[in-house]
């Protein structure tokens, strides 16, 4: 047996223990109920101050043989111990479930939402914190789940995982900090940042050239059709909505609403690096959507046929977001 093989079970146990205690990997399922095995409690800063005080009181009572000094010291110790149980009780039994993660462009923020319900007890001042997200503190009332929204900075395209979430509370006395880790496989998509000042959209299949998106829209208005989910908001006939006449989407002819656009990786100038290409394609996807033109997208290893709606756009942006540079020719 080799040394490596003999170490393997040990390493496995070590990583299992790490996972058990620190939840490094996103091993949690749809919803997690916080139980004793997940709840950790240590004294807070104030708790340590109090414990130190108790030690001083104890030494004083010992030295001067003050029976009543012991009584008061231990009554205070009892209070601190009871506070520990309450800190545990404030966290135990909370059910937390992942709800959703938003999408954003690189440089923006991904919002993750989680819901927590406290069951038949009011939970006080539960703090939810994840990585660099600003912590969220709220009471969880009886029988009503609370939605927590955590926003993380998204500096780079790709997937942004929520990571490990820490629920903690120092209630009811602030002497103990009880906390618990949950790690859901929840991640948001970060699209590439649209290239600022990107060149205009390439020629369409029908030989049109798009000079600038949105130009001449009003003049080439051709009519209304029923609103479909995913239509861009700027195309909605808001006046009709405001009148209460129903939901319609404006349709355009001519230069603005030309034929399908092929957005091709291969057609971009040589010499552009991968990220710039992705940024430019992202800008173009947005421009095409803005101009309400159907488009197709082809990048190494993936192809998206012509289409035009919100899902199409999302698919395209997701393709760009998750593009792996190894596939670049």
């Amino acid at each position: 047996m080799t040394a490596a093989a003999s170490h393997a079970p040990l390493a496995g146990a070590w990583s299992r223990a790490r996972q058990r205690f620190f939840r490094h990997a996103p091993g949690d399922d749809q919803s997690v109920v916080l139980r004793h095995s997940r709840i950790y409690i240590l004294p807070s800063r104030r708790g340590w101050t109090m414990i130190a005080t108790i030690v001083v009181m104890l030494l004083t009572s010992l030295n001067y043989g003050l029976s009543l000094g012991f009584a008061v010291t231990f009554a205070l110790t009892g209070l601190v111990a009871a506070a520990l149980l309450h800190a545990f009780r404030n966290l135990a039994g909370i059910e937390i479930r992942p709800l959703a993660a938003s999408e954003t462009f690189a440089g923006g923020r991904v919002a993750f939402t989680l819901s927590a319900s406290g069951g038949e007890r009011m939970r006080e001042a539960i703090e939810v914190r994840a990585a660099d997200a600003a912590p969220f503190v709220a009471d969880i009332p009886v029988g009503a789940p609370v939605t927590f929204r955590l926003e993380r900075d998204a500096p780079m395209r790709g997937r942004l995982a929520l990571g490990r979430v820490t629920l903690s509370s120092t209630q009811p006395t602030g002497l103990w900090r009880a906390w618990s880790y949950v790690h859901f496989p929840l991640s948001g998509i970060v699209y590439p940042q649209p290239e600022p000042g990107a060149p205009p959209l390439p020629r369409g299949l029908h030989g049109h050239d798009i000079s600038a998106p949105g130009q001449g829209e009003e003049s080439d208005f051709s009519g209304l059709r029923d609103y479909q989910s995913g239509d861009p908001p700027q195309r909605v006939a808001w006046k009709a909505v405001a009148r209460g006449a129903g939901w319609y989407t404006k349709e355009f002819d001519g230069a603005g609403g030309g034929g399908p656009l092929p957005l091709e990786w291969a057609a971009l100038p040589r010499g552009l690096d991968v990220e710039t290409r992705l940024s430019r394609l992202t800008a173009w996807v947005l421009a095409a959507e803005h101009a309400a033109r159907p488009f197709a997208l082809r990048i190494p290893g993936a192809t998206l046929p012509v289409g035009q709606d919100r899902d199409h756009r999302r698919t395209a942006l997701t393709m760009l977001a998750l593009f792996s540079p190894e596939r670049a020719p």
Binding site: N63, A71, F74, A75, L79, V80, A81, A82, L85, H86
Partner: peptide, 24 residues
């Protein structure tokens, strides 16, 4: 409630915490 719940611990410590005969 906290004080009352702590009383058993206080009594336990009062009875069991080792006392010393001479000052420290």
């Amino acid at each position: 409630a906290l004080v009352l719940q702590g009383i058993p611990i206080a009594a336990l410590l009062f009875v069991l915490f080792p006392r010393i005969g001479a000052p420290l």
